[in-house]
Amino acid sequence: MANSLLAAVNPFARRDEYSRNTLNVYRVTTLVSYLVLVVTAFYYTFNKPHEGHHPHKKIWGNNRPTPFAQNSIITSVYWLILFLLQALSTLSLFTSNPTHRHATASIAPHTTLSNLLLFAFIHLWTRSHFLLSLLLLAVNFANLSAAYFRHSTTPRFIHWGSVSGPLAWNFVALYWVGAVAVHNTNHLAARIVANVFIWGFLGYGLFFLVAFKDYTMGFNLSVLSFSTAVGQLLTKPHLFQLQWIFAFTIGAILFVLSVLVAAPGLIGREDLFVRGQVVSEDRERAPLLANE
Protein backbone atom coordinates (compact mmCIF):
# COMPACT_ATOMS: atom_id res chain seq x y z
CA MET A 1 0.00 0.00 0.00
CA ALA A 2 2.76 2.39 1.00
CA ASN A 3 4.78 1.49 -2.08
CA SER A 4 1.84 2.07 -4.42
CA LEU A 5 1.10 5.41 -2.75
CA LEU A 6 4.73 6.45 -3.05
CA ALA A 7 4.76 5.47 -6.73
CA ALA A 8 1.59 7.49 -7.31
CA VAL A 9 3.09 10.71 -5.95
CA ASN A 10 6.66 10.16 -7.18
CA PRO A 11 7.07 12.03 -10.50
CA PHE A 12 10.14 9.92 -11.36
CA ALA A 13 8.36 6.57 -10.98
CA ARG A 14 7.83 4.41 -14.08
CA ARG A 15 4.29 4.38 -15.43
CA ASP A 16 2.58 2.40 -18.16
CA GLU A 17 0.26 5.30 -18.88
CA TYR A 18 -0.34 8.88 -17.77
CA SER A 19 -3.64 10.46 -16.84
CA ARG A 20 -4.82 13.63 -18.56
CA ASN A 21 -4.18 15.64 -15.39
CA THR A 22 -0.63 14.31 -15.11
CA LEU A 23 0.06 15.10 -18.75
CA ASN A 24 -1.27 18.63 -18.27
CA VAL A 25 1.02 19.13 -15.27
CA TYR A 26 4.00 17.88 -17.26
CA ARG A 27 3.08 20.11 -20.19
CA VAL A 28 3.02 23.21 -18.01
CA THR A 29 6.10 22.45 -15.91
CA THR A 30 8.23 21.33 -18.86
CA LEU A 31 7.26 24.28 -21.04
CA VAL A 32 7.69 26.87 -18.26
CA SER A 33 11.05 25.49 -17.14
CA TYR A 34 12.22 25.41 -20.78
CA LEU A 35 11.22 29.04 -21.39
CA VAL A 36 12.79 30.17 -18.12
CA LEU A 37 16.08 28.49 -19.02
CA VAL A 38 16.15 29.78 -22.61
CA VAL A 39 15.37 33.38 -21.63
CA THR A 40 17.94 33.30 -18.81
CA ALA A 41 20.64 31.79 -21.04
CA PHE A 42 20.10 34.37 -23.77
CA TYR A 43 19.94 37.27 -21.32
CA TYR A 44 23.16 36.43 -19.48
CA THR A 45 24.98 35.66 -22.71
CA PHE A 46 24.80 39.37 -23.52
CA ASN A 47 24.31 40.93 -20.07
CA LYS A 48 25.83 40.55 -16.62
CA PRO A 49 24.14 40.82 -13.21
CA HIS A 50 24.25 44.29 -11.69
CA GLU A 51 23.19 43.83 -8.07
CA GLY A 52 25.59 43.40 -5.13
CA HIS A 53 29.37 43.76 -4.95
CA HIS A 54 30.51 40.25 -5.89
CA PRO A 55 32.34 40.00 -9.26
CA HIS A 56 29.66 39.74 -11.93
CA LYS A 57 30.24 38.68 -15.52
CA LYS A 58 28.38 37.45 -18.58
CA ILE A 59 28.24 33.68 -19.05
CA TRP A 60 31.38 33.65 -21.17
CA GLY A 61 33.07 36.29 -19.07
CA ASN A 62 34.03 33.55 -16.61
CA ASN A 63 35.47 31.31 -19.33
CA ARG A 64 38.93 31.72 -17.81
CA PRO A 65 42.19 30.45 -19.37
CA THR A 66 42.15 27.05 -17.67
CA PRO A 67 43.09 23.70 -19.28
CA PHE A 68 39.37 23.13 -19.94
CA ALA A 69 38.38 26.54 -21.29
CA GLN A 70 35.88 26.16 -24.13
CA ASN A 71 35.26 28.12 -27.29
CA SER A 72 32.23 30.33 -26.73
CA ILE A 73 31.01 30.19 -30.34
CA ILE A 74 31.10 26.40 -30.75
CA THR A 75 29.49 25.69 -27.39
CA SER A 76 26.86 28.40 -27.91
CA VAL A 77 25.89 26.89 -31.28
CA TYR A 78 25.77 23.49 -29.58
CA TRP A 79 23.24 24.85 -27.08
CA LEU A 80 21.21 26.61 -29.74
CA ILE A 81 20.73 23.27 -31.47
CA LEU A 82 19.86 21.61 -28.15
CA PHE A 83 17.26 24.29 -27.41
CA LEU A 84 15.65 23.65 -30.81
CA LEU A 85 15.63 19.89 -30.26
CA GLN A 86 14.25 20.31 -26.76
CA ALA A 87 11.48 22.53 -28.12
CA LEU A 88 10.47 19.71 -30.48
CA SER A 89 10.64 17.28 -27.56
CA THR A 90 8.44 19.51 -25.41
CA LEU A 91 5.89 19.81 -28.21
CA SER A 92 5.69 16.00 -28.21
CA LEU A 93 3.73 16.28 -24.96
CA PHE A 94 0.95 17.87 -27.03
CA THR A 95 1.09 15.43 -29.96
CA SER A 96 -1.50 12.81 -30.80
CA ASN A 97 1.28 10.25 -31.32
CA PRO A 98 1.01 8.06 -28.19
CA THR A 99 4.55 6.73 -28.48
CA HIS A 100 6.19 10.15 -28.54
CA ARG A 101 3.81 11.56 -25.94
CA HIS A 102 4.48 8.72 -23.51
CA ALA A 103 8.24 8.85 -24.07
CA THR A 104 8.38 12.60 -23.44
CA ALA A 105 6.17 12.29 -20.37
CA SER A 106 8.48 9.61 -18.97
CA ILE A 107 11.47 11.97 -18.96
CA ALA A 108 9.51 15.18 -18.28
CA PRO A 109 10.32 15.32 -14.52
CA HIS A 110 14.03 14.86 -15.28
CA THR A 111 13.88 17.50 -18.02
CA THR A 112 12.10 19.99 -15.77
CA LEU A 113 14.58 19.42 -12.94
CA SER A 114 17.50 19.78 -15.35
CA ASN A 115 16.16 23.05 -16.74
CA LEU A 116 15.66 24.48 -13.26
CA LEU A 117 19.11 23.38 -12.10
CA LEU A 118 20.71 24.95 -15.19
CA PHE A 119 18.69 28.11 -14.59
CA ALA A 120 20.09 28.31 -11.06
CA PHE A 121 23.58 27.39 -12.34
CA ILE A 122 23.61 30.36 -14.73
CA HIS A 123 22.67 32.74 -11.93
CA LEU A 124 25.43 31.39 -9.67
CA TRP A 125 28.02 31.17 -12.45
CA THR A 126 27.54 34.74 -13.65
CA ARG A 127 27.86 35.90 -10.04
CA SER A 128 31.14 33.96 -9.68
CA HIS A 129 29.87 31.44 -7.10
CA PHE A 130 31.92 28.66 -8.66
CA LEU A 131 31.76 25.97 -5.97
CA LEU A 132 27.98 26.24 -5.72
CA SER A 133 27.80 26.16 -9.53
CA LEU A 134 29.87 22.98 -9.52
CA LEU A 135 27.58 21.44 -6.90
CA LEU A 136 24.49 22.08 -9.04
CA LEU A 137 26.22 20.53 -12.05
CA ALA A 138 27.02 17.43 -9.98
CA VAL A 139 23.34 17.14 -8.95
CA ASN A 140 22.19 17.59 -12.53
CA PHE A 141 24.72 15.04 -13.75
CA ALA A 142 23.12 12.49 -11.42
CA ASN A 143 19.64 13.55 -12.57
CA LEU A 144 20.42 13.29 -16.29
CA SER A 145 22.34 10.04 -15.82
CA ALA A 146 19.27 8.57 -14.11
CA ALA A 147 17.10 9.77 -17.01
CA TYR A 148 19.47 8.17 -19.51
CA PHE A 149 19.69 4.75 -17.89
CA ARG A 150 16.00 4.57 -16.91
CA HIS A 151 14.68 5.64 -20.32
CA SER A 152 17.39 4.63 -22.75
CA THR A 153 15.02 3.63 -25.56
CA THR A 154 13.40 7.04 -25.95
CA PRO A 155 12.88 8.02 -29.63
CA ARG A 156 16.03 9.57 -31.03
CA PHE A 157 15.06 13.23 -31.42
CA ILE A 158 13.59 13.34 -27.91
CA HIS A 159 16.58 11.53 -26.45
CA TRP A 160 19.11 13.80 -28.17
CA GLY A 161 17.63 17.15 -27.18
CA SER A 162 16.45 16.35 -23.67
CA VAL A 163 18.85 13.68 -22.38
CA SER A 164 22.08 12.93 -24.24
CA GLY A 165 22.82 16.50 -25.36
CA PRO A 166 22.48 18.10 -21.91
CA LEU A 167 24.18 15.11 -20.25
CA ALA A 168 27.24 15.35 -22.51
CA TRP A 169 27.58 19.08 -21.86
CA ASN A 170 27.05 18.57 -18.14
CA PHE A 171 29.88 16.03 -18.08
CA VAL A 172 32.29 18.38 -19.87
CA ALA A 173 31.10 21.33 -17.76
CA LEU A 174 32.18 19.50 -14.60
CA TYR A 175 35.75 19.81 -15.91
CA TRP A 176 35.21 23.37 -17.16
CA VAL A 177 33.69 24.75 -13.97
CA GLY A 178 35.85 22.58 -11.72
CA ALA A 179 39.01 24.04 -13.27
CA VAL A 180 37.74 27.57 -12.62
CA ALA A 181 36.62 26.71 -9.09
CA VAL A 182 40.02 25.41 -7.92
CA HIS A 183 41.89 28.48 -9.30
CA ASN A 184 45.48 28.63 -10.50
CA THR A 185 45.07 25.73 -12.94
CA ASN A 186 47.28 27.15 -15.68
CA HIS A 187 50.66 26.34 -14.13
CA LEU A 188 52.81 23.40 -15.25
CA ALA A 189 51.67 20.79 -12.69
CA ALA A 190 47.99 21.55 -13.29
CA ARG A 191 48.50 21.36 -17.05
CA ILE A 192 50.12 17.92 -16.76
CA VAL A 193 47.21 16.66 -14.62
CA ALA A 194 44.73 18.14 -17.09
CA ASN A 195 46.54 16.41 -19.99
CA VAL A 196 45.64 13.11 -18.30
CA PHE A 197 42.13 14.01 -17.19
CA ILE A 198 40.98 15.16 -20.61
CA TRP A 199 41.10 11.56 -21.83
CA GLY A 200 38.05 11.07 -19.63
CA PHE A 201 36.11 12.65 -22.52
CA LEU A 202 37.13 9.74 -24.74
CA GLY A 203 36.47 7.09 -22.09
CA TYR A 204 33.01 8.49 -21.35
CA GLY A 205 32.12 8.64 -25.03
CA LEU A 206 33.41 5.12 -25.74
CA PHE A 207 31.27 3.77 -22.91
CA PHE A 208 28.06 4.94 -24.60
CA LEU A 209 29.21 3.98 -28.07
CA VAL A 210 30.10 0.44 -27.00
CA ALA A 211 27.51 -0.29 -24.30
CA PHE A 212 24.54 1.53 -25.87
CA LYS A 213 25.61 2.07 -29.49
CA ASP A 214 24.49 5.64 -28.88
CA TYR A 215 26.07 7.77 -31.57
CA THR A 216 24.31 10.89 -30.25
CA MET A 217 26.59 10.87 -27.20
CA GLY A 218 29.58 10.32 -29.46
CA PHE A 219 28.74 13.31 -31.65
CA ASN A 220 27.92 15.46 -28.61
CA LEU A 221 31.24 14.78 -26.92
CA SER A 222 33.08 15.14 -30.23
CA VAL A 223 31.74 18.68 -30.70
CA LEU A 224 32.50 19.61 -27.09
CA SER A 225 36.02 18.19 -27.43
CA PHE A 226 36.56 20.37 -30.51
CA SER A 227 35.23 23.34 -28.53
CA THR A 228 37.75 22.61 -25.78
CA ALA A 229 40.54 22.26 -28.37
CA VAL A 230 39.77 25.63 -29.95
CA GLY A 231 39.40 27.16 -26.49
CA GLN A 232 42.86 25.92 -25.61
CA LEU A 233 44.34 27.38 -28.78
CA LEU A 234 42.97 30.76 -27.75
CA THR A 235 44.31 30.66 -24.19
CA LYS A 236 47.70 32.07 -23.22
CA PRO A 237 50.46 29.78 -24.60
CA HIS A 238 52.11 27.57 -22.01
CA LEU A 239 55.34 25.61 -21.93
CA PHE A 240 53.39 22.36 -21.63
CA GLN A 241 50.43 23.24 -23.86
CA LEU A 242 49.37 19.84 -25.24
CA GLN A 243 45.72 20.10 -24.27
CA TRP A 244 44.53 21.32 -27.66
CA ILE A 245 46.29 18.45 -29.43
CA PHE A 246 44.67 15.87 -27.15
CA ALA A 247 41.26 17.53 -27.42
CA PHE A 248 41.37 17.56 -31.24
CA THR A 249 42.48 13.92 -31.23
CA ILE A 250 39.66 12.88 -28.89
CA GLY A 251 37.10 14.83 -30.93
CA ALA A 252 38.26 13.20 -34.16
CA ILE A 253 38.21 9.68 -32.70
CA LEU A 254 34.72 10.12 -31.27
CA PHE A 255 33.42 11.62 -34.51
CA VAL A 256 34.73 8.77 -36.67
CA LEU A 257 33.44 6.09 -34.29
CA SER A 258 30.06 7.81 -34.06
CA VAL A 259 29.76 7.83 -37.85
CA LEU A 260 30.58 4.11 -37.93
CA VAL A 261 27.94 3.37 -35.29
CA ALA A 262 25.34 5.54 -37.02
CA ALA A 263 26.12 4.26 -40.53
CA PRO A 264 23.82 1.17 -40.52
CA GLY A 265 20.80 3.34 -39.76
CA LEU A 266 21.81 6.04 -42.22
CA ILE A 267 22.03 3.57 -45.12
CA GLY A 268 18.86 1.77 -44.15
CA ARG A 269 20.38 -1.19 -42.35
CA GLU A 270 19.06 -1.09 -38.83
CA ASP A 271 20.39 -4.42 -37.73
CA LEU A 272 22.48 -2.95 -34.91
CA PHE A 273 19.51 -1.41 -33.13
CA VAL A 274 15.90 -0.65 -33.98
CA ARG A 275 15.30 2.89 -35.20
CA GLY A 276 13.99 5.09 -32.42
CA GLN A 277 15.89 3.08 -29.83
CA VAL A 278 19.25 3.53 -28.20
CA VAL A 279 19.66 -0.07 -27.15
CA SER A 280 17.87 -3.37 -27.62
CA GLU A 281 14.14 -3.54 -27.11
CA ASP A 282 14.37 -5.64 -23.96
CA ARG A 283 15.80 -2.62 -22.12
CA GLU A 284 12.48 -0.77 -21.95
CA ARG A 285 8.74 -1.28 -22.19
CA ALA A 286 7.16 -1.57 -25.61
CA PRO A 287 5.10 1.68 -25.42
CA LEU A 288 8.36 3.66 -25.65
CA LEU A 289 9.43 2.12 -28.94
CA ALA A 290 9.20 4.36 -31.96
CA ASN A 291 7.24 2.81 -34.77
CA GLU A 292 8.24 5.23 -37.48
Rank of each mutant, 00 (worst) to 15 (best):
T40Q: 14
V210D: 07
L266M: 14
L209F: 05
T249R: 02
R27V: 13
T235R: 02
M1C: 11
F226W: 07
G268T: 13
L6I: 13
I74H: 06
Y34P: 03
P237G: 01
N195K: 09
L254P: 04
F240D: 03
N140I: 11
R64Q: 00
I122A: 09
H129D: 09
I81F: 12
P109C: 09
K57N: 09
G218N: 06
A290N: 13
S225K: 00
M1D: 12
A168L: 08
G203E: 01
S72T: 11
L93R: 03
S76G: 14
F197W: 12
D271I: 01
L113H: 03
N140S: 11
L202N: 04
S19F: 08
W60R: 06
P237C: 00
Q70R: 11
G265C: 11
F255L: 15
V196N: 07
A211S: 12
I74P: 08
L118D: 08
I81W: 12
G268D: 01
A262Y: 04
G203Y: 07
S164Y: 05
G61R: 00
T235H: 04
R191M: 07
T235F: 02
H183K: 15
K213T: 02
I81P: 06
T185M: 11
I250T: 05
S280C: 02
I245H: 03
L35A: 10
L23K: 04
W199I: 09
V261F: 00
L206K: 05
H187Q: 11
A120N: 09
K236I: 02
D282W: 05
H50D: 11
F121P: 03
F248A: 01
H53G: 08
A189P: 04
R14V: 02
W176C: 05
A138N: 08
S4N: 14
I250Q: 01
R275Y: 03
I245R: 10
R64F: 01
N24V: 09
T22F: 13
L266S: 15
V172N: 12
F226L: 01
L82V: 12
P98H: 09
S164I: 05
E17A: 14
V256I: 15
A87S: 12
G268K: 07
L93F: 06
I59W: 00
A190Q: 09
R64N: 00
E17W: 08
T29K: 10
L91P: 01
Y43G: 07
N143C: 06
Q243P: 01
A69C: 06
L31V: 14
E281Q: 05
F130P: 04
L80I: 13
H50Q: 15
T90L: 07
T185G: 00
V25Q: 08
R275K: 13
T216L: 02
H183I: 10
L233I: 05
V9K: 14
L37T: 10
L288H: 14
F157V: 10
V278T: 05
K58P: 00
F201K: 10
F207K: 06
F246Q: 03
Y175I: 12
F119H: 14
